[in-house]
């Protein structure tokens, strides 16, 4: 493969070939090239695609996925995987809504409660993974079910606020919460700004803090990390706690967008986040990756869904295309890695 392309008997200098080519562009650009390419295709096919309002719409739709996928990026870089993100989001969002609507808590107190409890449950998961020496996949798979169940218990399986209770109490979501999910500042969605803020925060954690460095080290070579004095168990426990906090925040945004909390919201979102992380070029086996890649991965999936909607493609077909996209991207990524070696 590509033997013809590289055998340009270049004996003069051993430096890299700096000439421009499509192959080179694909190699270096990765999923960003995919995102731009896909956007161009939709722009040609639909006049509505390249409008500001449509782009803001895409952002509004993927903002929650971006928040959760940022958490997933950190977990996957540490060679773990968090299948419980969707459930934690439901728990955090539901708990906050119940506290505010039914228990009469203030917006701030309720929101904090939701985020902190999600964080604590994440910490518990992480501790189980680290101390119980069980695979991340199993621990978080268990939590995926258990946490969703707790969210259902808290809400009684009903939307919050619901018609039954709303008559007895004040029971409506405060405007501040709705603003988080649906509000605008100067025409730009608040949820989008939160998502971008989360991505920047995650970049900072990964690249500027000892915790971030430890995540790469533990994910890249657990034994080496331990032998260099890194407390591997603590890092593992903490990354799930941080993931939980992110999920809690995502829950608030989603409740705000839907105007209601629901214990069954964000079902299956764990898979969307994993897909975004993988499309973004993060190594599923840990040690390598970036949150900006994840941002692009999430946007790519959002643009695809949006474009297909604009083109009136049947939702059933959208699922098929989405699934195949993930496979195609990973195949592409494998090729890229092989060639870059």
């Amino acid at each position: 493969m590509g033997a013809k392309g590289t055998s340009s008997a270049d004996k003069s200098s051993p430096t890299t070939n700096s000439s421009f080519s499509i192959k080179e562009l694909l190699l270096r650009g990765g999923s960003l090239v995919g995102l731009i390419g896909l956007s161009l295709v939709f722009a040609v096919l639909s006049p509505h695609f390249f409008t500001l309002s449509n782009w803001l719409n895409v952002f509004r739709q993927v903002s929650v996925v971006i928040i959760l996928a940022s958490a997933q990026t950190m977990v996957i870089i540490s060679a773990g995987i968090d299948l419980s993100v969707g459930s934690l989001l439901a728990l955090g969002g539901s708990l906050a809504a119940v506290a505010i609507c039914y228990w009469g808590w203030s917006l701030l107190a309720g929101a904090l409660l939701g985020v902190l409890v999600a964080g604590l449950v994440g910490l518990a998961t992480g501790t189980i993974v680290a101390k119980g020496k069980i695979p991340d996949f199993i621990a978080t798979l268990g939590m995926l079910g258990a946490v969703r169940g707790i969210a259902l218990l808290i809400t009684g399986g009903l939307p919050v606020p619901s018609h039954f209770t709303a008559t007895e109490l004040t029971g409506y979501l405060p405007a501040g919460l709705i603003w988080l999910g649906s509000g605008d500042i100067g025409g730009f969605p608040v949820s989008m700004m939160i998502a971008v803020g989360v991505v920047i925060l995650t970049w900072f954690i990964l690249n500027r803090t000892t915790f971030g460095r430890s995540l790469y080290a533990v994910g890249g070579n657990r034994e080496a990390a331990r032998a260099s004095g890194i407390n591997v168990d603590r890092v593992k426990a903490l990354v799930y706690a941080v993931s939980g906090l992110y999920c809690g925040l995502g829950g608030l945004v989603l409740v705000g967008r839907m105007n209601s909390a629901n214990a069954l919201m964000a079902e299956g979102m764990e898979l969307q986040t994993i897909a975004a992380v993988v499309i973004g070029g993060t190594n599923l086996f840990g040690g390598k990756g970036s949150v900006f890649g994840t941002l692009i991965g999430a946007l790519l999936m959002g643009v695809l869904a949006n474009g297909l909607n604009l083109l009136n493609v049947q939702p059933f077909w959208q699922r098929v295309i989405n699934g195949l996209l993930i496979i195609a991207v990973v195949v592409f990524d494998q090729w890229r890695r092989r060639v870059l070696r």
Binding site: Y216, A217, G220, N221, A224, A225, A227, S228, N283, G287
Partner: peptide, 9 residues
Amino acid sequence: RRESLVYDL
């Protein structure tokens, strides 16, 4: 060495 280096770093 493989027990001690983090190759991707």
